[in-house]
Design a binder for these strands. Structure first.
Lengths: 337, 337
DNA sequence: GACGTTTAGCGAATCGATTCGACACATCGG
DNA sequence: CCGATGTGTCGAATCGATTCGCTAAACGTC
């Protein structure tokens, strides 16, 4: 069931079949129909490996994800799903590579085996050796998230700094004078995870600017972490009247903590943050939050990558998204003492 | 940076380089070292497409996932992660194909383009045309979940029937006489999603056997669905004293419903179910549940697939897992009236 | 009618690896 | 000392597609 078989059955040469399929040279209408009939009959499709070998491109994108051990967050999952969908829309396949260990065989295979035309990298750190590895390999890539040196690379990211600052301003406008930031986990901060660092910095700055007390709390990325973090917060800093969070996985725990403390949102406590809409709407009352547009981001990442593959020496392009904060029901005026 | 370049620099023929790498024929120790030195220097790796073309296999597995629009559940995500990890362990890559639409281009590319050596299919329905398509294409495949005609195919599945029955028996042993099953969504039941059907059947049978009142309730796969379902349950069937659920995504909503109703688990209400450990332990109090071993299942699926690829005509093997129910804190004796 | 142009199709080279057959040389048992 | 066996290496064929260069017929034009 190769091109030679089709040629034989249609009574033409292999090259004619190829031209009939690609349309790069004219083929007589009667011949074309005969070829098409044979193809439809046996359900032929060109062998991907042979085509990749000859053309020098695989029509496949690589997607580097965190290893399974660190279970993916909902947001990361959203990126994976949207990248795969966007790629499928352009008739591209997606090869998955779990990576994060130091020298990963799967990652190396991906880039030096020329298995993919380009790579999308998730869960970027401020200093990321995978980025340098890709640069030296000369393989086009786009990152979701950006490093400390963002100018030479293509990336798509959520503007955590702006969004966190907006949350602080929103809460300060409502009269809150003591605000806590529930950040991502200590481990992530330690390994140089950008969003955690940028959120912390922007939070501090915005709090200073508005003359409010700001308090940064690391928090494990799961419900249990959220509950524990909230309890510590109540115990050590009872003066806090508002919370900003970028840790969506901790939300259910925070909610439980609030309920166990017998508080009512937003009467006793206001909460705002950055989260996928899915999580924000799952919170009770629904969370005032900037909705991270994971679907669009995946699509943008694929588009940028395709552009980069087409013109590898073009100027690197970035996309820093700051979606508006959806006002829902979790923020209100500071409670009267 | 191809094998010819290596051969030139090492002063040997291309075939010698190939044999040095594969070890299929002896190569002089001195020659081998010279070749290895050149390879290490330029960081050469064989071109995947060329190798696939010659060898007739791609060292790649296909993983068919539900499309992004239906966001993946935690359990599905666990399968993806574990399959990718298990494959990486065997130096295999994983190609993702979102599918579920009727005739999917991405799915067709995967199988008729010979892009993969085998396929793992998730989210199987009782009657699944993708299974027949794979059979007629003669491509080895393993399913996670099984169809209504399970004997001719390889699969790995959770034995929902047994697990649900065990939950019913456990609760009946504790004295409960009216038990509800919170099942998956009506849509899934309608399209013939196996676990939902099998759970329902086994639940009914076990309830009959123990002479207890059983009630099957469909429930949307998210927190909001769980909350709504629980409220309906309280309203229409207040006699229920115990719940069995296989809908882990609904757990947070069920929890919220319980708290809003002012009930205490397990004093007023017992709950048992089937869920990933992650969700069971996130429930308060921790959920008595059979922990779905997603990590192992992914690994088993890959192993079965590799076996099938090696011997395509061997007898199809199945694996029906019934993990033990972990007794945690959410079940107790029926409340005294 | 000679000559350029367009149209249709064929044959052969090519991509980068693997692998078979062949050859040269060393080693060993009888 | 000679055939049998084994070792180390090379050249060429091969996998299945794409694509360049060429041929040949059909066509129009002066």
């Amino acid at each position: 069931m190769n091109i030679g078989e089709i040629a034989r059955r249609a009574g033409v040469s292999r090259s004619t079949v190829s031209y009939a399929l690609s349309g790069r040279r004219p083929v007589g209408p009667e011949t074309r129909q005969r070829i098409q009939a044979v193809i439809d009959e046996i359900g032929y499709r060109p062998n991907a490996a042979a085509r990749a070998l000859k053309e020098g491109r695989t029509r496949t994108l690589g997607l580097v994800i965190p290893p399974a051990s660190l279970l993916l967050t909902d947001m990361q999952l959203g990126f994976v799903a949207s990248v795969v969908e966007a790629a499928a829309h352009d008739d591209l396949d997606v090869l998955l590579s779990p990576s994060g260990g130091d020298h990963d065989r799967s990652f190396e295979r991906l880039i030096s085996g020329r298995r993919v035309d380009g790579v999308i990298l998730m869960e970027i750190r401020l200093e990321d050796e995978r980025v340098t590895r890709l640069q030296q390999a000369g393989l086009p890539f786009v990152t979701i998230g950006h490093t400390a040196h963002p100018h030479g690379t293509c990336w798509v990211d959520v503007d955590y700094a702006t969004l966190v600052a907006r949350c602080v301003h929103h809460l300060a406008d409502l009269g809150h004078r003591a605000i806590a930031l529930i950040n991502r986990s200590t481990e992530l901060v330690a390994v140089g995870y950008g969003p955690a660092h940028r959120a912390q910095a922007a939070f501090g700055e915005a709090a200073d600017r508005r003359g409010v007390t700001g308090m940064n709390l690391p928090c494990a990325d799961d419900p249990a972490g959220g509950e524990e973090c909230f309890e510590q917060l109540r115990e050590r800093h009872p003066e806090i009247t508002a919370i900003v969070t970028i840790n969506e996985a901790a939300l259910p725990g925070i909610q439980r903590g609030i309920e166990r403390a017998g508080l009512t949102v937003p009467r006793d406590l206001s909460i705002a943050g950055v989260a996928a809409r899915h999580w924000a709407e799952g919170f009770r009352p629904q969370l005032t939050a900037a909705d991270v547009p994971t679907l669009e981001m995946g699509k943008h990442a694929v588009d940028l990558l395709l552009e980069r593959i087409a013109t590898p020496d073009g100027a690197p392009r970035h996309l820093l998204l700051a979606p508006p904060i959806s006002l829902r029901d979790s923020t209100g005026p500071v409670p009267a003492v």
